[in-house]
Design a protein around this nucleic acid. Sequence first.
DNA 1: GGCTTGCCTAGAGTGCACTCGAAGGTCTTA
DNA 2: TAAGACCTTCGAGTGCACTCTAGGCAAGCC
Lengths: 150, 150
Amino acid sequence: MTVIESIPATDLLDPTPCATPPSAYLRPDGEDRYTIGEVAQFTGLSAHTLRWYEQIGLLGQVERSHTGQRRFCNRDLDWLELVGKLRLTGMAVADMVRYAELVRQGESTFDERREILLATRRQVLARIAELHGTLAVLDYKIDYYGGSGR
Amino acid sequence: MTVIESIPATDLLDPTPCATPPSAYLRPDGEDRYTIGEVAQFTGLSAHTLRWYEQIGLLGQVERSHTGQRRFCNRDLDWLELVGKLRLTGMAVADMVRYAELVRQGESTFDERREILLATRRQVLARIAELHGTLAVLDYKIDYYGGSGR
DNA sequence: GGCTTGCCTAGAGTGCACTCGAAGGTCTTA
DNA sequence: TAAGACCTTCGAGTGCACTCTAGGCAAGCC
C-alpha cells in the first residue's frame, strides 16, 4: 500500500506504446505464455475479472492455445500493471477502455492519450490535496479524543 | 477541491463530542432551523440522501416542526461536514454509522472513536502514498507521449 | 476408466451508495 | 383561495465494478 516507486533509467527508452515501469516477469520474453490462473495470482485480479476485462475491451484480444485457452504474454502483464495504476487513481473502467482503444489505434492518438493522462494527473493532485484536508480534520478530532497514538 | 484547511485556535476548546472545524453557518445558534432543502443546497447532498442518512442512523434524530417536517440545526450541519470528510477518505457508510452510534453513546466510547479515527488516518496516509506512486507512473508516461503540458 | 483440476462461455447476481417515483400532505406567495 | 413549491413515506431503480453460477470441455494422474 505504501509503494512509492522509482523508475530505473533503463526503462526510459522503452519504445512500446503501452510501456510501463518495471515488472518482475515470471518468464523471459519468448517463453511468456501464462494461463489465466497464473495471471490472476500475479496481478491479484480474479480470473473472472480478467475475462471480463478482455470482454469489455480493456485488455485487447489475448492469445489462445490450440484448445482455446487464454495465454497471456509479458506485454499483457505490463498493460495490466498500468491498468492497476490507473484504477488506483480512481479512473472509471469506461475511461480506461477508451484509453485502451486509443492505444490500439496507434501513434496518431498520442496527443489524445497525453491529454487523458494529464487530466488524470490533475485529478490525482486534487485528490491528494483533498486527502490532506481530511487529514487535518482527523488530526483535529484525534487530538480532541485524547491525542497521540499516531 | 484543493482545500487544505487550517483550524482556528478558538475551536480547539470546543467541548461538544461532534466538534468539527469551522462552518460558515447560515444562521446563528438559536435561529438555526433549516429545512431539508436548505441543507441539501448547503451540503451538496440531495434531500433524498439526507433522509436516507437519517433513516440508516448516520444522522441521528433530526428535530421536526409541529407538522412533522425536518428542521436541521447548526449541529447537524457540523456533523454532516464531518461525514463529508470521512466520506472523502473512502470510509464506508456502515463504518460511519458505527461511528455515529458511538458518538450517541457518549463519553465512554472516546477510546474506540479515537481508534477508528487513527485507523482512518493511517488509511488516508497509505492512500496518499499510493497516489504519489500513480503520479510517478503518470509522469513517466506523459513524458513518453511528449511531456510537458503540466 | 474415473477423478481432479483448470479452463471455457453466457448470463445472472451482488453490494454499495445513492437516486428516483408515486401518491399524497403542507406551506408560502399573489 | 388557489397555484405551485416543497414536504412526507415506502419501495423500487440505477450505475458501477465486479462476482458468481451453470453447464461443459480438456489434460494430467492413479
